[in-house]
Design a protein around this nucleic acid. Structure first.
Lengths: 339, 339
DNA sequence: TTGTAAGCGTTATCAC
DNA sequence: GTGATAACGCTTACAA
């Protein structure tokens, strides 16, 4: 059944049916109602392909993420999907993994599917070299690209991110102000946000005119157990710290487990701060104090930006959101000043 | 740029170009190469809408899930997406929430988008009454529907599920055999798989000719803390148990927290078994023993079934996979016989 | 093996 | 306001 059947039944032309369909041009209320009624009766559904052909859009946004099973990204996808749905956009999901070649391929795939925009979820999409980011910039020549929690400067590329540097700066500063000196920064990678977190940490030291030793920073990917073991090994070499601030909750839980293993009291002997405020942090004992990077808000922001761009509004290329802190059992310091 | 441009440049007809595009009919190797080369040079990309119009398919599968941020569902989505991608199918994601009306609406939406199939991820999609499941059966009249971890009998509906009843039966039986009697079953809901889990639990009791008291079964939705408090309240009424078997890892972690709160030793005084073998179980202390319901395998199965259906193969309406057990720190019993 | 031409179901541009 | 009619870019009989 198609628009012709409807037009015949309603005794109008297909053009009129199309107009009714699109709520578009001037159609008399009488014919509109007539057509609507016929559609209802016949159970007519417009063909999206034909419509796509005409309009060259399918009301679909592609979301690329490394791994949708990652708890942080999964949550991001959820918020993005919900928000896009509010604007009647569908979501085409691509789990790209972490390899650059694949991502490039997926981007081409999404372009060939004629999505209306692409959202890159996760700062790990932004590479260090201009060359490796070129495929993103090229895609942005055709459709808007929005990066969630990453920063990339290019035409038609928009970024919504949390001020990770500031968050780590404030946490670290709070501890330094309280007289703590042996603070360990535990990061997972040197992605854009990874670098930002580290620099926030360093900035706090600098501002106090304090020296940050090399072994106060560890960048290490690994499972909870691997992180725990890493820290145990470190402790056995006699390196101890009073505070561990991390770049994600899994790292932080690794730190909690390390403390447990060696009988180090949390938060008595050691304070631990996680990042992302994920559900994982509620599973350990004591529950994790964790930076809340306002994911829901960021995701809404991403979608808002997109909608503005679709309607040819001017939009800032970059929106920065400041983080919050969910204070729980792994810390005893008073953050009130900093947060 | 379209197929006409290519055909002109290559000095052939559009039909030939189309044939090359579809690797379809007999085209001489010479012309094929010629056309391919022109496409490459021109950077030609077929228009999916036009293609969809012709073929009436977009090589897209809709995945409906309640909430993609749920760790179990997020993992399922990941596996499904990866596997579908292997067959060049895209994924249209719908997070429907738990309300029936919404789900019905989303199903209609997916149908109107002309997806080639729908996957319902999670047993919560299957309702208790035929009436409420009708929309699924009706959708299945148009396209195949596959239910992951749920069971629904209808034409063109396929189910891939883990034998949850058996898993709970085996766990419970192991404890009963070891002489434990005070076992608590902690479920979250009476969805299809929820019911199955409970009945596996009950079956173990029955088979031993043992009576299962009413207060040995709790069906309760809630956060980790809520579950913990619930159990604390129960303990204060003097009800204690030696073993808690649960329907998901969050419930189990609630149980672990309850034990911690009251100074109950795990696994000394209390053994806890989770379900899903999720990452959450690695975050608590001790780490959670948890039923591994073979999610990856189930997801591969779902996709395999779909591909067979697409190619008109006969497929069993229901595939049952038996669960495994990831034994960790919250149990001390020897499961080897049962698993 | 290749080409011609008729769909596929819309939207959009004209006239009226 | 409404109706013809030409795109849109592809697939696929049917011819050659």
């Amino acid at each position: 059944m198609n628009i012709y059947d409807v037009s015949r039944q309603a005794g109008v032309s297909i053009a009129t049916v199309s107009r009714v369909l699109n709520g578009n041009a001037k159609v008399s209320e009488a014919t509109r109602q007539k057509v609507l009624k016929v559609m209802e009766e016949m159970g007519y559904t417009p063909n999206v392909f034909a419509r796509g052909l005409g309009l060259n859009t399918m009301q679909t946004v592609g979301i690329m993420c490394a791994d949708s099973s990652d708890s942080y990204l999964a949550t991001a996808i959820y918020y993005l999907e919900q928000e896009l749905r509010n604007y009647d956009y569908d979501v085409l999901l691509c789990c790209t993994g972490y390899e650059w070649e694949n991502r490039k391929k997926y981007m081409e795939l999404l372009l060939s599917k004629r999505v209306d925009a692409v959202i890159l979820a996760g700062s790990n999409f932004v590479e260090q070299t201009r060359e490796k980011n070129r495929y993103i910039a090229e895609a942005a020549e055709k459709i808007p690209v929005v990066v969630l929690n990453g920063y990339l400067e290019a035409e038609n590329v928009y970024c919504a991110l949390c001020d990770d540097a500031d968050a780590l700066y404030r946490v670290t500063k709070t501890y330094l102000n309280a007289g703590k000196r042996d603070i360990l920064f535990l990061g997972r990678s040197l992605s854009y946000s990874g670098v930002r977190k580290r620099s926030g940490f360093l900035q706090a030291y600098e501002e106090m005119g304090l020296k940050c030793r090399k072994n106060q920073i560890i960048i290490q990917d690994g499972t909870i157990d691997e992180i725990r073991d890493l820290l145990i090994g470190r402790a056995k070499q006699g390196i101890r710290e009073e505070v561990i601030v991390t770049a994600d909750d899994e790292l932080a839980i690794g730190a909690v487990k390390y403390a447990k293993s060696l009988g180090i009291q949390i938060p008595g002997d050691l304070e631990v701060v996680g990042y992302n405020n994920s559900k994982l942090g509620l599973c350990c004992e004591p529950e994790l104090t964790s930076v809340d990077n306002k994911l829901e808000y960021s995701c809404m922001n991403v979608v808002n930006v997109l909608m503005k761009v679709f309607h040819h509004g001017r939009v800032p290329a970059r929106t920065m959101i400041s983080a919050d802190l969910a204070v729980r059992g792994t810390t005893s310091i008073n953050f009130l000043g900093g947060f």
